[in-house]
Protein backbone atom coordinates (compact mmCIF):
# COMPACT_ATOMS: atom_id res chain seq x y z
CA UNK A 1 0.00 0.00 0.00
CA UNK A 2 1.36 3.37 -1.02
CA UNK A 3 1.31 6.36 1.27
CA UNK A 4 -1.66 8.63 0.95
CA UNK A 5 -3.02 11.72 2.54
CA UNK A 6 -6.22 11.07 4.44
CA UNK A 7 -8.92 13.68 4.56
CA UNK A 8 -12.32 13.49 6.05
CA UNK A 9 -15.03 15.21 4.06
CA UNK A 10 -17.35 17.35 6.08
CA UNK A 11 -19.79 18.06 3.27
CA UNK A 12 -20.37 16.94 -0.33
CA UNK A 13 -18.85 20.07 -1.85
CA UNK A 14 -15.65 19.50 0.00
CA UNK A 15 -15.58 15.85 -1.00
CA UNK A 16 -16.17 16.65 -4.63
CA UNK A 17 -13.51 19.34 -4.64
CA UNK A 18 -10.98 17.06 -3.00
CA UNK A 19 -11.70 14.27 -5.44
CA UNK A 20 -11.43 16.43 -8.51
CA UNK A 21 -8.48 18.53 -7.37
CA UNK A 22 -5.97 16.95 -9.74
CA UNK A 23 -8.39 16.24 -12.55
CA UNK A 24 -5.79 15.91 -15.26
CA UNK A 25 -4.07 13.05 -13.44
CA UNK A 26 -7.39 11.53 -12.57
CA UNK A 27 -8.31 9.54 -15.63
CA UNK A 28 -9.56 6.90 -15.81
CA UNK A 29 -11.48 6.99 -12.56
CA UNK A 30 -10.08 3.62 -11.50
CA UNK A 31 -6.61 5.19 -11.53
CA UNK A 32 -7.61 8.53 -10.08
CA UNK A 33 -5.07 9.90 -7.64
CA UNK A 34 -7.82 10.75 -5.20
CA UNK A 35 -10.29 8.06 -4.20
CA UNK A 36 -13.34 8.21 -1.98
CA UNK A 37 -13.40 5.97 1.07
CA UNK A 38 -16.79 4.70 2.13
CA UNK A 39 -16.96 1.19 3.61
CA UNK A 40 -13.42 0.50 2.47
CA UNK A 41 -14.09 -3.11 1.63
CA UNK A 42 -12.94 -2.67 -1.96
CA UNK A 43 -10.58 0.27 -1.70
CA UNK A 44 -8.50 -0.83 1.28
CA UNK A 45 -8.43 -4.39 -0.05
CA UNK A 46 -7.10 -3.28 -3.44
CA UNK A 47 -4.70 -0.77 -1.92
CA UNK A 48 -3.16 -3.53 0.20
CA UNK A 49 -2.74 -5.56 -2.97
CA UNK A 50 -1.09 -2.53 -4.60
CA UNK A 51 -3.71 -2.64 -7.34
CA UNK A 52 -4.99 0.82 -6.41
CA UNK A 53 -2.50 3.51 -5.45
CA UNK A 54 -4.32 6.74 -4.65
CA UNK A 55 -2.24 9.60 -3.30
CA UNK A 56 -5.25 10.94 -1.49
CA UNK A 57 -8.10 9.18 0.24
CA UNK A 58 -11.19 11.22 0.96
CA UNK A 59 -13.30 9.70 3.71
CA UNK A 60 -16.90 10.38 2.74
CA UNK A 61 -18.45 8.59 5.70
CA UNK A 62 -19.29 11.89 7.43
CA UNK A 63 -21.74 12.50 4.57
CA UNK A 64 -23.76 9.54 5.80
CA UNK A 65 -26.15 11.72 7.77
CA UNK A 66 -27.35 13.17 4.47
CA UNK A 67 -26.77 10.26 2.13
CA UNK A 68 -27.92 7.15 3.90
CA UNK A 69 -31.68 7.41 4.11
CA UNK A 70 -33.83 4.46 3.12
CA UNK A 71 -37.04 5.96 1.82
CA UNK A 72 -39.78 3.79 0.42
CA UNK A 73 -42.86 5.91 -0.02
CA UNK A 74 -45.26 3.31 -1.32
CA UNK A 75 -44.89 4.13 -4.99
CA UNK A 76 -41.17 4.68 -5.25
CA UNK A 77 -37.96 3.99 -3.42
CA UNK A 78 -35.00 6.19 -2.75
CA UNK A 79 -31.83 4.76 -1.25
CA UNK A 80 -28.98 6.94 -0.05
CA UNK A 81 -25.66 5.81 -1.45
CA UNK A 82 -24.05 5.65 1.96
CA UNK A 83 -26.74 3.41 3.41
CA UNK A 84 -25.12 0.19 4.63
CA UNK A 85 -25.92 -3.03 2.83
CA UNK A 86 -27.03 -4.66 6.08
CA UNK A 87 -29.47 -1.88 6.95
CA UNK A 88 -31.14 -1.99 3.57
CA UNK A 89 -31.29 -5.78 3.56
CA UNK A 90 -32.98 -5.78 6.95
CA UNK A 91 -35.48 -3.01 6.19
CA UNK A 92 -38.99 -4.40 6.49
CA UNK A 93 -40.48 -2.44 3.63
CA UNK A 94 -37.61 -3.32 1.30
CA UNK A 95 -38.11 -6.98 2.11
CA UNK A 96 -41.81 -6.68 1.45
CA UNK A 97 -41.88 -4.51 -1.66
CA UNK A 98 -38.46 -5.16 -3.18
CA UNK A 99 -37.39 -8.68 -2.17
CA UNK A 100 -34.94 -8.80 -5.07
CA UNK A 101 -33.06 -5.92 -3.48
CA UNK A 102 -33.16 -7.32 0.03
CA UNK A 103 -32.03 -10.76 -1.11
CA UNK A 104 -29.28 -9.52 -3.41
CA UNK A 105 -27.84 -7.71 -0.42
CA UNK A 106 -28.48 -10.44 2.13
CA UNK A 107 -26.81 -13.09 -0.02
CA UNK A 108 -23.69 -10.99 -0.60
CA UNK A 109 -20.46 -11.06 1.38
CA UNK A 110 -20.70 -11.54 5.15
CA UNK A 111 -22.53 -9.83 7.97
CA UNK A 112 -19.42 -7.85 8.86
CA UNK A 113 -18.78 -6.69 5.31
CA UNK A 114 -22.44 -5.79 4.84
CA UNK A 115 -22.19 -3.63 7.97
CA UNK A 116 -19.28 -1.77 6.43
CA UNK A 117 -20.05 -1.62 2.74
CA UNK A 118 -22.31 1.09 1.38
CA UNK A 119 -24.69 0.80 -1.55
CA UNK A 120 -22.67 3.24 -3.61
CA UNK A 121 -19.43 1.44 -2.89
CA UNK A 122 -21.08 -1.88 -3.56
CA UNK A 123 -22.05 -1.03 -7.12
CA UNK A 124 -18.56 0.36 -7.69
CA UNK A 125 -16.78 -2.78 -6.44
CA UNK A 126 -14.20 -4.13 -8.81
CA UNK A 127 -13.70 -7.51 -10.36
CA UNK A 128 -12.36 -10.51 -8.44
CA UNK A 129 -10.30 -11.69 -11.42
CA UNK A 130 -7.23 -13.31 -9.84
CA UNK A 131 -4.95 -11.93 -12.50
CA UNK A 132 -6.26 -8.42 -11.97
CA UNK A 133 -5.80 -8.71 -8.22
CA UNK A 134 -2.26 -10.05 -8.42
CA UNK A 135 0.07 -7.28 -9.55
CA UNK A 136 2.85 -9.75 -10.22
CA UNK A 137 1.00 -10.48 -13.47
CA UNK A 138 1.94 -7.71 -15.84
CA UNK A 139 -0.57 -8.68 -18.47
CA UNK A 140 -3.85 -7.26 -17.33
CA UNK A 141 -5.50 -4.81 -19.67
CA UNK A 142 -7.59 -3.47 -16.85
CA UNK A 143 -4.59 -2.65 -14.68
CA UNK A 144 -2.01 -2.02 -17.40
CA UNK A 145 -3.88 -1.02 -20.56
CA UNK A 146 -2.48 -2.74 -23.61
CA UNK A 147 -0.55 -5.39 -21.66
CA UNK A 148 -2.77 -8.33 -22.56
CA UNK A 149 -5.06 -10.56 -20.55
CA UNK A 150 -3.69 -13.40 -18.47
CA UNK A 151 -7.16 -14.73 -17.74
CA UNK A 152 -8.14 -15.32 -21.35
CA UNK A 153 -6.21 -18.59 -21.49
CA UNK A 154 -5.57 -18.97 -17.80
CA UNK A 155 -7.65 -20.29 -14.95
CA UNK A 156 -10.96 -18.67 -15.88
CA UNK A 157 -13.67 -20.65 -14.14
CA UNK A 158 -14.98 -17.52 -12.44
CA UNK A 159 -14.86 -15.35 -15.54
CA UNK A 160 -17.58 -13.82 -17.69
CA UNK A 161 -19.36 -15.30 -20.68
CA UNK A 162 -21.37 -12.19 -21.55
CA UNK A 163 -20.16 -8.71 -22.37
CA UNK A 164 -16.60 -9.84 -22.84
CA UNK A 165 -14.12 -8.48 -25.34
CA UNK A 166 -10.82 -9.67 -26.69
CA UNK A 167 -9.27 -7.40 -24.06
CA UNK A 168 -10.98 -8.53 -20.88
CA UNK A 169 -13.23 -11.26 -19.54
CA UNK A 170 -13.31 -10.15 -15.91
CA UNK A 171 -16.62 -10.67 -14.16
CA UNK A 172 -18.53 -7.92 -12.44
CA UNK A 173 -18.80 -9.63 -9.05
CA UNK A 174 -21.63 -7.84 -7.26
CA UNK A 175 -25.20 -8.86 -6.57
CA UNK A 176 -27.10 -5.68 -5.70
CA UNK A 177 -26.38 -4.02 -9.05
CA UNK A 178 -28.37 -6.75 -10.79
CA UNK A 179 -31.40 -5.82 -8.72
CA UNK A 180 -30.93 -2.16 -9.55
CA UNK A 181 -30.55 -2.69 -13.26
CA UNK A 182 -33.52 -5.03 -13.34
CA UNK A 183 -35.74 -2.45 -11.64
CA UNK A 184 -34.71 0.38 -14.00
CA UNK A 185 -33.10 2.24 -11.13
CA UNK A 186 -31.90 5.77 -11.58
CA UNK A 187 -28.59 6.74 -10.09
CA UNK A 188 -28.12 10.17 -8.66
CA UNK A 189 -24.64 11.58 -9.00
CA UNK A 190 -23.22 14.53 -7.15
CA UNK A 191 -20.39 16.41 -8.78
CA UNK A 192 -18.91 19.83 -9.12
CA UNK A 193 -21.86 21.07 -11.12
CA UNK A 194 -24.34 19.78 -8.60
CA UNK A 195 -26.51 16.74 -8.96
CA UNK A 196 -27.33 14.80 -12.09
CA UNK A 197 -29.31 11.63 -12.65
CA UNK A 198 -29.06 8.87 -15.19
CA UNK A 199 -30.35 5.35 -15.64
CA UNK A 200 -28.33 2.91 -13.57
CA UNK A 201 -27.96 0.85 -16.73
CA UNK A 202 -25.69 3.60 -18.07
CA UNK A 203 -23.34 3.54 -15.11
CA UNK A 204 -21.22 0.51 -15.96
CA UNK A 205 -19.28 0.12 -19.17
CA UNK A 206 -18.47 -3.18 -20.80
CA UNK A 207 -14.70 -3.60 -21.25
CA UNK A 208 -14.56 -3.30 -25.04
CA UNK A 209 -11.17 -1.94 -25.94
CA UNK A 210 -10.83 0.04 -22.69
CA UNK A 211 -11.29 -2.35 -19.78
CA UNK A 212 -9.63 0.17 -17.47
CA UNK A 213 -12.74 2.32 -17.82
CA UNK A 214 -15.39 0.58 -15.74
CA UNK A 215 -18.06 3.22 -15.31
CA UNK A 216 -19.21 6.48 -16.77
CA UNK A 217 -18.61 8.19 -13.47
CA UNK A 218 -16.11 11.01 -13.76
CA UNK A 219 -13.42 11.87 -11.26
CA UNK A 220 -14.90 14.19 -8.68
CA UNK A 221 -18.30 12.58 -8.98
CA UNK A 222 -19.91 10.58 -6.23
CA UNK A 223 -22.98 8.43 -6.26
CA UNK A 224 -25.34 10.02 -3.78
CA UNK A 225 -28.53 7.98 -4.21
CA UNK A 226 -30.49 5.41 -6.17
CA UNK A 227 -34.16 5.63 -6.94
CA UNK A 228 -36.67 3.16 -8.24
CA UNK A 229 -40.20 3.75 -9.47
CA UNK A 230 -43.00 1.43 -8.47
CA UNK A 231 -43.11 -1.54 -6.13
CA UNK A 232 -41.81 -4.96 -7.10
CA UNK A 233 -43.10 -7.42 -4.55
CA UNK A 234 -42.96 -10.23 -7.12
CA UNK A 235 -39.21 -10.31 -7.45
CA UNK A 236 -36.44 -12.73 -6.56
CA UNK A 237 -32.69 -12.93 -6.49
CA UNK A 238 -31.35 -16.43 -7.08
CA UNK A 239 -27.65 -17.02 -6.57
CA UNK A 240 -25.75 -20.21 -7.34
CA UNK A 241 -22.37 -20.82 -5.75
CA UNK A 242 -20.05 -23.55 -4.53
CA UNK A 243 -20.30 -22.59 -0.91
CA UNK A 244 -23.59 -22.02 0.89
CA UNK A 245 -22.60 -18.53 2.00
CA UNK A 246 -19.89 -15.87 1.83
CA UNK A 247 -19.02 -16.39 -1.80
CA UNK A 248 -19.42 -14.51 -5.04
CA UNK A 249 -21.95 -15.81 -7.51
CA UNK A 250 -21.08 -18.37 -10.13
CA UNK A 251 -24.34 -17.36 -11.68
CA UNK A 252 -27.24 -15.32 -10.41
CA UNK A 253 -30.48 -13.91 -11.68
CA UNK A 254 -32.53 -10.94 -10.55
CA UNK A 255 -36.06 -11.37 -11.75
CA UNK A 256 -39.01 -9.05 -11.24
CA UNK A 257 -42.46 -9.69 -12.65
CA UNK A 258 -45.77 -7.95 -12.80
CA UNK A 259 -48.34 -10.70 -13.28
CA UNK A 260 -52.02 -9.96 -13.52
CA UNK A 261 -54.61 -12.68 -13.98
CA UNK A 262 -51.91 -15.08 -15.06
CA UNK A 263 -50.55 -12.78 -17.72
CA UNK A 264 -47.10 -11.27 -17.43
CA UNK A 265 -47.51 -7.51 -17.85
CA UNK A 266 -43.95 -6.57 -17.18
CA UNK A 267 -40.81 -8.63 -16.71
CA UNK A 268 -37.27 -7.81 -15.76
CA UNK A 269 -34.33 -10.21 -15.92
CA UNK A 270 -30.78 -9.33 -14.93
CA UNK A 271 -27.80 -11.63 -14.69
CA UNK A 272 -24.89 -11.74 -12.27
CA UNK A 273 -21.70 -13.76 -12.02
CA UNK A 274 -21.67 -14.34 -15.75
CA UNK A 275 -21.08 -10.91 -17.28
CA UNK A 276 -18.49 -8.17 -17.27
CA UNK A 277 -21.05 -5.64 -16.08
CA UNK A 278 -24.45 -5.79 -14.37
CA UNK A 279 -26.36 -7.43 -17.20
CA UNK A 280 -29.92 -6.76 -18.23
CA UNK A 281 -31.32 -9.49 -20.49
CA UNK A 282 -33.78 -7.25 -22.34
CA UNK A 283 -34.36 -9.49 -25.35
CA UNK A 284 -35.07 -12.39 -23.08
CA UNK A 285 -37.50 -10.50 -20.91
CA UNK A 286 -39.34 -9.21 -23.97
CA UNK A 287 -40.39 -12.80 -24.65
CA UNK A 288 -42.29 -12.81 -21.37
CA UNK A 289 -44.43 -9.74 -21.81
CA UNK A 290 -48.05 -10.48 -22.48
CA UNK A 291 -47.53 -14.21 -22.11
CA UNK A 292 -48.77 -16.80 -19.69
CA UNK A 293 -45.95 -18.53 -17.87
CA UNK A 294 -45.03 -22.12 -18.49
CA UNK A 295 -41.86 -24.17 -18.41
CA UNK A 296 -41.34 -23.97 -22.15
CA UNK A 297 -41.48 -20.20 -22.02
CA UNK A 298 -38.97 -20.18 -19.18
CA UNK A 299 -36.63 -22.25 -21.31
CA UNK A 300 -36.99 -19.91 -24.28
CA UNK A 301 -36.27 -16.93 -22.08
CA UNK A 302 -33.27 -18.64 -20.51
CA UNK A 303 -31.83 -19.50 -23.91
CA UNK A 304 -32.41 -16.00 -25.22
CA UNK A 305 -30.62 -14.56 -22.20
CA UNK A 306 -27.48 -16.46 -23.11
CA UNK A 307 -27.80 -16.35 -26.88
CA UNK A 308 -24.65 -14.27 -27.23
CA UNK A 309 -22.69 -15.97 -24.47
CA UNK A 310 -19.18 -17.08 -25.20
CA UNK A 311 -17.44 -19.53 -22.91
CA UNK A 312 -13.80 -20.26 -22.49
CA UNK A 313 -11.90 -23.25 -21.20
CA UNK A 314 -13.08 -23.33 -17.60
CA UNK A 315 -16.22 -21.21 -17.65
CA UNK A 316 -18.35 -22.63 -20.46
CA UNK A 317 -20.47 -24.32 -17.82
CA UNK A 318 -21.79 -20.92 -16.85
CA UNK A 319 -23.88 -20.80 -20.00
CA UNK A 320 -25.90 -23.87 -19.10
CA UNK A 321 -25.88 -22.97 -15.45
CA UNK A 322 -26.98 -19.43 -16.18
CA UNK A 323 -29.92 -20.66 -18.26
CA UNK A 324 -31.08 -22.98 -15.51
CA UNK A 325 -30.71 -20.22 -12.93
CA UNK A 326 -32.83 -17.87 -15.04
CA UNK A 327 -35.50 -20.49 -15.62
CA UNK A 328 -35.63 -21.37 -11.95
CA UNK A 329 -35.71 -17.74 -10.83
CA UNK A 330 -38.62 -17.09 -13.20
CA UNK A 331 -40.45 -20.07 -11.82
CA UNK A 332 -39.86 -18.86 -8.27
CA UNK A 333 -41.02 -15.37 -9.09
CA UNK A 334 -44.19 -16.62 -10.75
CA UNK A 335 -45.10 -18.91 -7.89
CA UNK A 336 -44.09 -16.76 -4.96
CA UNK A 337 -46.85 -15.66 -2.65
CA UNK A 338 -47.15 -11.94 -2.31
Amino acid sequence: MRSFSYRRASDPDMAVRALSAAAAANNPLTKATAQPLAGGTTLIDLMKLDVMRPAAVVDINPLAHAWSAIEPDGEALRLGALAKMSDVAAHAEIRRSYPVIADSLRLAASAQLRNMATLGGNVMQRTRCSYFRDVSYENCNKRNPGSGCAAMDGVNRMHAVLGTSDQCIATYPGDFAQALIALDAVVEITGKAGTRSMPFAQLHKAPGSTPEIETTLQPGELISAFSIQGRWPRSVYLKARDRQSYEFALSSAAVALDVQDGTIRDARVALGGVATVPWRAREAEALLKGEKFDEALAQRVAHAAFADARGRRHNSFKIGLGRRVVARALQQAVTMEI
Binding site: R128, S130, Y131, G154, V155, M158, D242, R243, Q244, S245, Y246, E247, F248
Partner: peptide, 16 residues
Protein backbone atom coordinates in the same frame (compact mmCIF):
# COMPACT_ATOMS: atom_id res chain seq x y z
CA UNK B 1 -1.11 -20.91 -7.77
CA UNK B 2 -4.05 -18.78 -8.77
CA UNK B 3 -6.67 -18.84 -6.00
CA UNK B 4 -4.24 -18.18 -3.17
CA UNK B 5 -6.59 -16.50 -0.73
CA UNK B 6 -9.53 -17.38 1.50
CA UNK B 7 -12.13 -15.89 -0.83
CA UNK B 8 -11.12 -18.13 -3.72
CA UNK B 9 -9.62 -21.16 -1.98
CA UNK B 10 -12.88 -22.35 -0.53
CA UNK B 11 -13.08 -23.85 2.92
CA UNK B 12 -16.43 -24.49 4.60
CA UNK B 13 -18.28 -21.73 6.38
CA UNK B 14 -20.81 -22.25 9.12
CA UNK B 15 -23.75 -22.47 6.71
CA UNK B 16 -22.15 -25.41 4.91
Amino acid sequence: YVNDNLADYLVPVNAD
